[in-house]
Design a binder for these strands. Sequence first.
DNA 1: AGCGACAATGTGAACGCTAACATTTTTGCC
DNA 2: GGCAAAAATGTTAGCGTTCACATTGTCGCT
Lengths: 338, 338
Amino acid sequence: MSKTLLPPKRSRLEDVARQAGVSAQTVSRVLRKPGLVAEATRQRVQSVIDRLGYLPDLVASNLATSSTRMVAAIIPSLASSVFADTMQALSATLATNGYQLLIGDSNYSPEHEDELVQAMLGRRPDAIVLTGTSRSKKVRALLARAGVPVVETWNLTANPIDLCVGFSNHAAGFDIARYIFRRGYRRVAFIGRLRNDPRSEDRLRGFREGLRGHGMSSVRVIEVGDPASPEVGAAGIDELLRRYPDADAVFFGSDRLAIGGLLACVRRGIAVPERLAIVGFGDFEISSLTMPSLTTIAVPTWEIGSITGELVLARLAGREIPERIVDLGYRFIQRESA
Amino acid sequence: MSKTLLPPKRSRLEDVARQAGVSAQTVSRVLRKPGLVAEATRQRVQSVIDRLGYLPDLVASNLATSSTRMVAAIIPSLASSVFADTMQALSATLATNGYQLLIGDSNYSPEHEDELVQAMLGRRPDAIVLTGTSRSKKVRALLARAGVPVVETWNLTANPIDLCVGFSNHAAGFDIARYIFRRGYRRVAFIGRLRNDPRSEDRLRGFREGLRGHGMSSVRVIEVGDPASPEVGAAGIDELLRRYPDADAVFFGSDRLAIGGLLACVRRGIAVPERLAIVGFGDFEISSLTMPSLTTIAVPTWEIGSITGELVLARLAGREIPERIVDLGYRFIQRESA
DNA sequence: AGCGACAATGTGAACGCTAACATTTTTGCC
DNA sequence: GGCAAAAATGTTAGCGTTCACATTGTCGCT
């Protein structure tokens, strides 16, 4: 291939400068602070830039300015629609001020998250956004020392590393327990992931506590494995009916699972909610459309991203931040399934 | 805040070097080619690194080596599960060789895509991955001149900028037309996005061509707007029944829409497929679970990402690439809805 | 005409690292 | 013990920008 034989050798600031008969600094100014250069020179330089197709090297620029205009975010899974929503909102908010989002996927693994944090920090992001609030001491120290804004999202904590934007998964679980009790269900179950998903664990903890408050001490728990897919939710229903045929209500750790469970019930002729009530978590886009529709908790996925973005921008612009911890709450959505 | 008053001043290679009593270069070697330094020095240096919590500055490293170990990818939407799958696969594949993925979200806007390409190229990625095959001459030129591998994905083209990994959206639409004809449907419709979604357009084109081949020249087309959500699909069904009450089969441009349409039919008591047959596109994770389940086309979302990743890695390692155009095909999945 | 003020442009040095080469130390061998 | 080869370490220069400061040019005003 001729391509590899003739490396096209990108043009640099100096190449533009030479051809325009000015110094490199002037070219830099044309790009960055055009107001400081005479209109005639500006046009001359600009035309050379256009002709050469010159693109400033941000790597060099970043080194010189010690600012990368990148914000790193680490999420448990790219393919999970809720985090994708948050990332889209974050990305859009940051983009308004020229910041790029660098996304890392930890695949729900804490060890991998640690590595990612380290790898990301090496790239000198101007801020870093994390999912969840629980992480190793070592990583907390690393982050605290990085000297950039850190936002922990998707849950709340009393002592964030820096900033925190989310809602209380625990309280949501608690509320669901109360609702289920009030609706008269007494033999309740939980189907969801636990290992490596601290937020789901928090929901279950809140759920348990809520039930205990009403004198219901036992929860039938079915832990599911890695991809919290609808298929896994359907399998969860089957396991539930096998192991605890007496169950009359089930709380799924996520709507992705719940939808699978709900559709499985429809297919197997199990009346929802008469024979088995179902509550989900997350209010996915189809949760309102199934028949029966899914009772669930709506989570401010988009807002988490946009508020996080605004906090980060505020910090980077040196503005004061009123609250280090932002509780965006959640909404209980009563529909047909429970 | 004391934080802003005392910038913690990160340690550099030289700080480590001084404290360990060696030169900066030796520290660099400890990190990069530990085999080249004596075990005793290695340990001494390493302990200083640990004590100081030194993290190499990749920005500087990138400038020095003129390689960023970043691959840029531009997708139409982060929140679309299919592209998210592709990105997860790509990210995972690249991660095995220490490459980071930089994702840009064009929000289905060609102009925004152009800007993004430019912004991304400024960051000097080692490769760039695009969604789709149609773009402006200017951007094609920019990319060709960037001197890095370029992969166009999610569709096929006879003359890619560089590499191409995807399947034929046109052929898929064609196949669906044939299937629909064979099943005896004669008054067919299409519901989907067209503007700013060239791949969806390709599907419709293939669909039209396929129908024409069987003597069916008219397709009832309902174009839908921006978020191709299930709700929009449901609204599409309502519009279809209003405008073309005689339609007996509908092809949705994506499963996300189709699922919404399907559930709307269920809710309105419209028998699927007896009264109205439905075919989707994309085989989303719940498409097999609805009742009736959705007849659709399965698209190699994951493979597009992983194969793209492998091609990129091969190129970057200087390995020969057998085929510049990789057709991963698709699978027609017959289920209950048509 | 001459002065100061401001606008426009230029000149080093620095950002933190690594490639390439140079030097020193160690090792094996007769 | 002395020598060459190999191993370990050090030195210099640069990657492509921007910052801080220095210089030159322009203009209005007395």
